[in-house]
Design a protein around this nucleic acid. Structure first.
Lengths: 147, 147
DNA sequence: ACATTAATTGAGAATGAGTCTCAATTACAA
DNA sequence: TTGTAATTGAGACTCATTCTCAATTAATGT
């Protein structure tokens, strides 16, 4: 159901621009939507190969860009190991806390935070279209371990 | 005055770890502290060469890492064109708004935002050590141009 | 001042993510 | 089914960054 919906969004987006819904794009879309959280292009590519499906690295990169444009996924951040994407379909907007000990990425959302940011933008005459907040530190588990 | 102080911090940091205060590190420190805002390793390297000073790319990269560790600079973000650093010495903490039209990076600070984040961390049992907020959108100038 | 020694340097090779090229393939409208 | 422009994939390429290692040098003790 979710997948069908994602497919519809993607299909419409492609048609609107005279782009084609190829087998490769379909495979990449599917695998992307089946990622429940964050992912990176290389893992996605390997996952596709392991599943016996067909799509080149080049196509993976190309398709991820299109998926970003149509809002189904988002580039969360660039790291030393490459870009981290996130499946946005069915996910609400949220921000992240990154544990610098175990690398765990915790999602959170605060309405108050959103409102405050809007207010700050207004003060600067800035028209915000999106944001990225990453709080670094130690998660509950790692704090305990440190003792 | 500021430079001398930065030098002291760096020198102490190096000595504490049995590292050496070489000519190259001194040059890189100086040029880094004379950057008033954001910079990237390649520009810094070119600036050094243009000034007739001596330090290889390798040393620039190596030294920037050390300067990060001792808190004199910070890695602000990674882009498709490389890492953006920021001179932290004498700068207060602040967040950024990035204009996706002209690429301008606007600094801002909000006490309320800091407090709110602390509260959010507490709620998650997370011990925050720092954060990175980037609000994307259109700056005042670019908004006017768009009309 | 000088020797000792381990840290540092730099040139260029290596790495790795991501993009580009272009001939062969294929989706899709008519 | 056909025509045609979009797409694909293998591998070349780019570009930031790291690594290698022989030569150099800072810092310490005498």
């Amino acid at each position: 159901m979710k997948k069908a919906h994602g497919k519809l969004i993607f299909g419409t987006f492609l048609k609107d621009r005279g782009l084609r819904f190829t087998k490769e794009r379909s495979v990449i879309l599917q695998k992307t939507l089946s990622c429940s959280g964050h992912f990176d292009p290389e893992s996605l590519y390997l996952q596709i190969r392991e599943a016996g499906l067909k799509a080149s690295r080049a196509s993976v990169y190309r398709t991820l860009s299109i998926l970003c444009e149509c809002g189904l996924i988002e580039r969360v951040k660039k790291t030393e190991r490459g870009t981290i994407y996130e499946n946005m379909f069915g996910h609400e907007h949220h921000d992240h806390m990154l544990c610098i000990q175990c690398g765990n990425l915790i999602e959170f959302y605060s309405e108050e935070l959103e409102r405050l940011q809007e207010a700050l933008c207004k003060k600067q005459g800035f028209q915000g279209t999106g944001h990225n907040l990453e709080i670094r530190g130690y998660c509950r588990k790692c704090r305990k371990k440190k003792r």
